[in-house]
Write a protein that binds this DNA or RNA. Sequence first.
RNA 1: CGGGAUAUAGCGCAGUCUGGUAGCGCACUACACUGGGGGUGUAGUGGUCGCAGGUUCAAAUCCUGCUAUCCCGACCA
Length: 566
Amino acid sequence: MYLSKFQLTTLKETPSDAEISSHQLMLRAGMIKKLASGLYSWLPLGLRVMRKVENIVREEMDNSGCLEVLMPAVQPGELWKESGRWEQYGPELLRMKDRHDREFCFGPTHEEIITDLARTELSSYKQLPVTYYQIQTKFRDEVRPRFGVMRSREFIMKDAYSFHTSQHSLQQTYDIMYQAYSNIFTRLGLKFRAVMADSGAIGGNSSHEFHVLADSGEDAIAFSDESDYAANVEKAETRPATDKRPAASAQKTVVDTPDQHSIEEVSQFLDVPATRCLKTLFVAGSKKDTVVALVLRGDHELNEIKASHLADVAEPLCFASDEQIQQVTHCSAGSLGPVGLTIPVIADYAAIQVADFVCGANEDGKHFTGVNWERDCDLPTTADLRNIVEGDASPDGKGTLSIVRGIEVGHIFQLGTKYSEAMKATVLDENGKAVTMTMGCYGIGITRIVASAIEQNHDDNGIIWPTSLAPFDVAIAPINMQKSEDVSNTAIKLHDELTAAGLDVLLYDEKARLGGMLADLDLIGIPHRIVIGDRGLKEGKVEYKKRDAEESQEMAVDEVISFLTT
RNA sequence: CGGGAUAUAGCGCAGUCUGGUAGCGCACUACACUGGGGGUGUAGUGGUCGCAGGUUCAAAUCCUGCUAUCCCGACCA
């Protein structure tokens, strides 16, 4: 491809409304252009990358035995009413009416449509299992679209749906999809992790999220250094400690702590590490007008989802009001502690492991030091109340946990019969009896992958594409091509021969100074770059540099060709 | 939906307080010079100042209403 026949519109300045690197770089490189909030046009350069992602996904899905279909983006409301989601789905569902006043929506997902397809197309167990997939535009009317195509309203997704007559068969396909997803992200050249989702709720391996690792990711994920365990931080469980609590060595003492409320303040004021301070939070109980005390180690954070699942605690979680706290303790939040409380007390597993701890004295401006469970107050019931932190033991008992940030780009889960039952999707089994099909569902955010690949691979100069995603494989930057026949001939020769060898080559044949060319090529992230100049050609050499290499190297023209094509 | 901000050329911004015929940088066009990281010069193109009303001899500027966009929060696959 000659640049003069392509379209490259790069920006030197960063558009002001782009916050994260991938968004800024996609705009600067001229990959996308915003049309309205959450809506983007894909320009030629960006589309090339997206097609690469699509093709890899498509190949791996095909290799896994899935069948590609294409369903309408606009869907009749009728089907959504049948599944019950017309009412359930909030304003995120873009609803509309046609000229006959019939209701439709722009599909945010396709369970209803595929289930309708399956119930009319499939009639025998002999046709199962089957997995359909499509690569298609979705629309979700996000409350707050942001970060460019990372969280846009219209986006492209690969969604797949499988149909089975047994849980066993579903599990088999699920495992195949898990492997296919791993293959896809490996081929894309991305650092990723499969992470357990909904662990506990449905149990077992019923749901996994696939995350691309990047510091700017919206999710925090915990993984073990010695096993495959990996989970979303908000879902990762902590376990009761197996060690014995250290023996008490200090006396319980009341100390004045005027105006010291937060753990940070108290810990600094008394010069006691936060790990030896306990924080006590009052929340609404599950019975009306009751209050429950939750006790956590000072350096830990309450996990509101875990807490709200406890039988004694109201769901959703609701913190006690100042009046309620006053009623129970005659003091205000900031001086609360578990000593002498008459309301139910639930402590986190880690909190009861602390000896000689600091806690509020339930009296304004006073704290206890040297408090010990059992000796100074009853041992409370214990539960998993907190967010897991770096260094915690892995819940599977193997290794310790590290925490990294990730961008969710894939999700596989077992749907069961939620849709097939509501929509009466059945086939006849061996005995000629109608059975409701069991379903699985597998999504990959195509457009989000493009953005997350950039989040994971860029530097100050621009994007560094993994080779499998790059819009072009090789870029040729000829110095003064318009004036030097040597340079021009070599550039064209390189372009033609590399292209003939099956590489996507971009020849910078427009008039520009070298600095301009290099800045452009670094920005758009082409993996291999060849600079050609008269000076080097006198020695028969051109200059080759890999995008992420520190230094360039001199090579003979033929050498470069064989280097890049073998 | 709550809080905050912005809207002037394709992009980044000044001008608004104090009303008087639209500015700067980048990009773009033409020509010349220019071999190592967005170079220089000369000459150009491009804007009914988000929209609608009002005040005024006169509105980008003051007033009213609306719309769009962004940020923080809540919500959410």
